[in-house]
Every structure is written in structure tokens, then in C-alpha cells.
């Protein structure tokens, strides 16, 4: 792609080696953590573990209700954060005519990105649980998480949109395309990879979040019956098993492995969808 492959200079190799070393460090660090998880957790992993109910504080039984609660929290979170976040990013990038407004909003979002997760937890507890009367519930947890991942979705979408060639917009305008169709047919396809990165990062962050959820979606381990039920998210479960329950380490590691597998699947799915979508949009005639 860049530089003649035939004439890699010493500098080129040096930079490559440095980058490769950084990648190696990441792989080794990740490998060490995952190896540790496999060592303690594999023995507990089984189908009954995935679908069973939580018993004896989590030492025994499975994580079925926890998985369902986690899924529901995530659903609420994404249903709110994705449309709101992409909408905000598109407005900032395409509609904001007054620089001052755009800057104020950007500053607000940057501030939001910098709010510690535990403060989100406190805020969620007071605002969603008490003021809006949602109580300890899956909805409260999902909404709190939505606030938390909004900046990630917005920023990555913006990065995606900024990748659109700068002559695209005047070109589309010259052809008489409305802004809405310019966005739908030209800009969104460019932005989709960014949205996907934002979504996967957001999901990762949401699934990994403990501090904000303890205060909002709560601790209950029964099968959730609705969005107004309290439900324990998987990261809260892992935290409780690792920190509060003697003898919970094996099931904590197993739960963490389940979480990682789920993430792997979600990330794979997201990339797949993005590629499909891109192909359909950009080259509808090529198939």
C-alpha cells in the first residue's frame, strides 16, 4: 500500500519493529489475563451453568437469570444511545450552523465522556431510580449506561463522518440532492464503520461496567419478568463473586469467560453487518 515494499529502509523496519513490539505487549498482557481466567474458570463452564439459576450466593448453580438481565439492560441502553448518539453526531457534523452551539454541545459531550462511571451510578440512582421513579430496575440501569456510552458513540461516529471526502457535500448539493438523502445515501455509508466501532466499544464498556450498575439495576438474581424488575448484570455478578463470596472465584472466572465469548460474538456480528451494509449501499449493481 504505501512505500515501495522492495525498499524498506532501516527507519521503516525500526518503526515496524516498534509497532510490532507494542502489539506484542498487548497480546502478552491480554494472554496473561485470559490464561488466568481459563485456568480458574474452565472447569465450571457448561450448558447447565449458562441456563441454570444462581444458587448459594453464586458459588453453585449457573448464571441464566444474570445473562437475561444483562441482555435486557443492554437492549435498553442501545435503544436509547444509538439513535440519540448518531443523531447528535450527524447534527454536529452536518447541521450545526452556529459554531458556538456546536462547541457548547461538543464541550458538554466531552465533559460527559469524562464523568467517572461511579458518578454515573450516583446520578442514575438519584435521577432515574428516585426522581423518575423507576426504582432499582433494568430500565434504570440501561438508561444510566446509555448516558455513559453516548460520548463514545458520538465521537466515533464523528470520526467516521470526518472521513467523508470534503467535496462530497457540495457535489451532492450541486446535483440537487436534499440534505436528508445526502446523509442517508452518501454520508451514513461512510460513517457506518465509525458507528460500528462506537457500538462495539460502547457495548464492551457497558458490559464491563460495574460501578454504575450496582446503584441502578441492582443485585437481584431471580429471573427478570420485565424491564421494571431489578436484575443483576454479569459484571456486578463477577464483582460480587470475586469480592464478596469466599469460594466464588471459579464461577467468577467462568462468568468472565462467558462475557468474553459473548463480546467476541457481538463484535464479529457487528463487523459482518457493517460489511454487508457497506456493500449494499456503495455497490448495489455489482452483485
Amino acid at each position: 500500500m504505501i512505500g515501495g515494499a522492495a525498499r524498506l529502509s532501516r527507519n521503516d523496519r525500526l518503526l515496524g519493529a516498534a509497532g510490532g513490539f507494542a502489539a506484542l505487549v498487548v497480546l502478552v498482557g491480554f494472554g496473561a489475563i485470559v490464561f488466568d481466567l481459563f485456568q480458574t474458570g474452565t472447569a465450571s463452564l457448561s450448558i447447565p451453568f449458562l441456563v441454570g439459576k444462581v444458587e448459594n450466593g453464586g458459588r453453585a448453580g449457573g448464571i441464566g437469570p444474570v445473562l437475561i438481565s444483562t441482555g435486557m439492560i443492554l437492549l435498553v441502553c442501545l435503544a436509547v444511545a444509538l439513535p440519540l448518539g448518531t443523531g447528535c453526531a450527524i447534527w454536529l457534523s452536518e447541521f450545526a450552523s452556529k459554531i458556538r452551539f456546536a462547541r457548547a454541545i461538543t464541550a458538554g459531550i466531552d465533559l460527559l465522556a469524562s464523568v467517572p462511571s461511579i458518578v454515573f451510578g450516583l446520578f442514575g440512582m438519584v435521577f432515574f431510580c428516585r426522581t423518575l421513579g423507576l426504582g432499582f430496575s433494568i430500565t434504570s440501569g440501561g438508561l444510566t449506561l446509555a448516558c455513559m456510552i453516548l460520548p463514545i458513540v458520538i465521537r466515533t461516529t464523528l470520526i467516521g463522518l470526518s472521513g467523508a471526502p470534503s467535496n462530497l457535500r457540495p457535489g451532492a448539493a450541486a446535483l440537487g440532492l436534499s440534505r436528508v438523502s445526502t446523509i442517508r445515501h452518501l454520508l451514513l455509508p461512510v460513517a457506518i464503520p465509525g458507528v460500528v466501532v462506537g457500538t462495539t466499544l460502547g457495548i464492551s464498556r457497558a458490559l464491563a461496567e460495574t460501578a454504575a450498575l450496582i446503584f441502578t439495576s441492582g443485585y437481584a438474581t431471580r429471573w427478570p419478568e420485565g424491564f421494571d424488575d431489578s436484575g443483576r448484570a454479569i459484571s456486578v455478578h463477577i464483582y460480587d463473586l470475586a469480592m464478596n463470596v469466599p469460594g466464588g472465584a471459579a464461577n467468577a472466572a467462568a462468568s468472565a469467560l462467558v462475557l468474553l465469548l459473548a463480546l467476541l460474538f457481538i463484535n464479529y456480528l457487528a463487523t459482518l453487518l457493517a460489511d454487508r451494509w457497506l456493500l449494499k449501499r456503495i455497490a448495489p449493481t455489482s452483485e
Binding site: F30, I33, A208, I234, S235, Y239, A242, L264, N267
Partner: peptide, 12 residues
């Protein structure tokens, strides 16, 4: 790997 690393719960 990077995506997974981002998703490991902080407690782990």
C-alpha cells in the same frame, strides 16, 4: 483482541 480487551470487566 483489542475489542475483547476493552470488554474485560474492570473487576477482572
Amino acid at each position: 483482541v483489542l475489542e475483547l480487551l476493552a470488554g474485560i470487566p474492570s473487576v477482572v
